[in-house]
Design a protein around this nucleic acid. Structure first.
Lengths: 354, 354
DNA sequence: GTGAAAGCGCTAACAT
DNA sequence: ATGTTAGCGCTTTCAC
């Protein structure tokens, strides 16, 4: 009897507990006005029967579906498919969402979205109509997508935005302090004794690139170092551009002794460029990245970088979306925004000059 | 009007097309006995209203829920959470599932499962009762979990098993040829001129370890090379064990000139061990791995390895689970088993002796 | 504090 | 070839 949970309905529970289905529903939903005795007998019946409410029936009948959707960029997914690689960011995101969903008895659905489609608006509202999720989690760069935010607002679906950069008054915002993180890692280099620091920035279209660059420059200034424009290059977040960037930097008359790349892929490229030029890292050149991608740990030497708290941000996002957990009632101004701490991972690629 | 898909029901479509809801349902489900004219007008109305069937209503009323569940190991997830890393395997799996679900208009739900729980049986059947998925995708090592298979069978839920190793008559099996892949990569080493080949095997508890070792030995024999037991070590799939393994191998009187590790992490450890011993790779020692983890590309030199077709296996799994796509009617014996091709990725870590 | 009845938006039998 | 009716398993009014 104990394993046969399939087919057990609220009527079975009600019958066993000798109450009405409404009472069972009340207990299950933690509503008020339920006598302890009734609650007790219902809970017993639920346990004995191995009952669990049917998700479809709940979302059809009620206003809450208990479903959270992670929207995934289709173009990016196809790209990953082609290259045969997974998506570390997405993986960490999901991990955070899953951990939180489990606690709140929520369900996680993953949906592919073609953000470039001309029919995006319609696609999205059709999807929302079909699933009626209780909340949606948005990731960069789509956390800022105006059409997406509009559709979500119109449909009255709650949403959390990871790393939003614009429209900072809409939805739940979950972020990390990119600027401060860049400043921290730069200060780490300065404290190692470096005075000629270079930065391989990301594409200026991304405001994360801008923030990281700002953090870099802020650290220099705070330590009385001049910002030398010839030591700041713009890459495109790829391994190649990091490699090329470091080649240019090493060709300068006055070489930098440390390079901070705006992401790990570029830093890894820089590492390879340094090796190709016969420079020992960190003896002759220190290299730092940003993101803490899986490869950062396995490069030689392992990469000093900033670990983005992706899973933690995702968990925070889910927490804000789920009423059960939301009950804590934070101060009103905090309500819709949360900054999650990052971590500076100091590894072998940075050190004092040998 | 066009954006307001939320709230549009089958009744609205029926009214607009001037037909009954049953006719709309017929068209939507591609049932027979529908006149072209009716189909046409329904499709027009659907398009005009931006209608999409409500998932909950469908699964509640019908026998098909259009939901596929990817079961994810909770313990593993927590471990990843702690380490702050994503799960590349899972990510690639999902990618394949998503791509296939999109085509069939299916939905992907991700569920955490505590395979170690004493209440596993009950947990699973409760979950199945709550979601009523149309299919479940199982990943190693849980593709072989007897309790899981039993519960699934009892509940009558279809399931696909990625890389099954036992009970090869149950469910849909999707696999790659581990043995042949190991043989291929070993042959690659032999063809480079190596004659003293070592193997760092995985834990013998995993049958993948066994198969890879068999492939390794088969390649040796086919090329008239003796299998030297002193050159076969057992690791535990960790970086550390690869490092220690290669240290032991390099301490031998007659060193091997090539090492095939049963997974990338161990191969990466071997790479580091070789570097520590002052051996150039591949000039003095060739190193090959298995899996093609993300780090394999970024090691120095990049790792020669076998790319497991995880996404492709997942896609195949989903395809077998989804009736719409299943329609192709393969030869009966093929019906429930599919072997997906792997890829030998030759990179810088293997080459002839310098 | 508890229960009866009416849907939620579909699909599935059964009409016709 | 098309329509009518009755549920699926819950939540939600609204009674008591």
């Amino acid at each position: 009897m104990s394993g046969m949970a399939a087919g057990v309905t609220i009527y079975d529970v009600a019958a066993r507990a000798g109450v009405s289905i409404k009472s069972v529903s009340r207990v299950l939903n933690g509503e008020a006005n339920v006598s302890p005795a009734l609650r007790e007998s219902v809970n017993t019946a639920v346990a004995e029967l191995g009952y669990r409410r049917n998700l479809s029936a709940r979302s059809l009948a009620g206003s809450s579906s208990s479903i959270i959707i992670a929207m995934v960029d289709e173009a990016l997914t196809i790209e990953h498919w082609r290259s045969g690689r997974g998506n570390d960011y997405l993986s960490r995101l999901e991990l955070g969402l899953l951990m939180e969903c489990r606690q709140a008895d929520y369900y996680l659905m993953v949906e592919l979205v073609d953000y470039g489609a001309a029919t995006l608006r319609r696609d999205l509202s059709a999807m929302l109509a079909a699933i009626r999720p209780e909340g949606v989690v948005l990731t960069p760069p789509n956390s800022d997508h105006p059409v997406v935010l509009d559709v979500l607002d119109e449909a009255g679906v709650a949403y959390a935005r990871i790393g939003p950069e614009r429209d900072l008054d809409r939805g739940v915002r979950i972020r990390m302090d990119e600027r401060q993180a860049a400043e921290d890692i730069t200060r780490h280099l300065i404290e190692l004794g470096h005075r000629r620091l270079a930065h391989i920035a990301g594409p200026s279209a991304y405001s994360a690139s801008r923030l990281r660059r700002e953090g870099f420059e802020a650290a220099l200034r705070k330590h009385g170092l001049a910002v030398d424009e010839s030591l700041i290059l713009e890459g495109d977040f790829t391994f190649q551009s990091g490699l090329q960037g470091v080649e240019r930097l090493l060709a300068l008359a006055e070489r930098p002794t440390a390079v901070f790349a705006a992401n790990d892929d570029m830093a890894l490229g820089a590492l390879q460029g340094a090796a190709a030029a016969g420079l020992s890292v960190p003896g002759a050149l220190s290299v730092a990245g940003f993101d803490d991608t899986p490869s950062a740990l396995f490069s030689t030497p392992a990469l000093t970088t900033i670990r983005q708290p992706v899973a933690e941000m995702a968990a925070a996002a889910a927490r804000r979306l789920v009423p059960t957990l939301r009950g804590e009632m934070p101060r009103s101004s905090d309500l819709n925004e949360e900054t999650v701490p990052y971590q500076l991972m100091v590894r072998g690629s940075t050190g004092p000059l040998a």
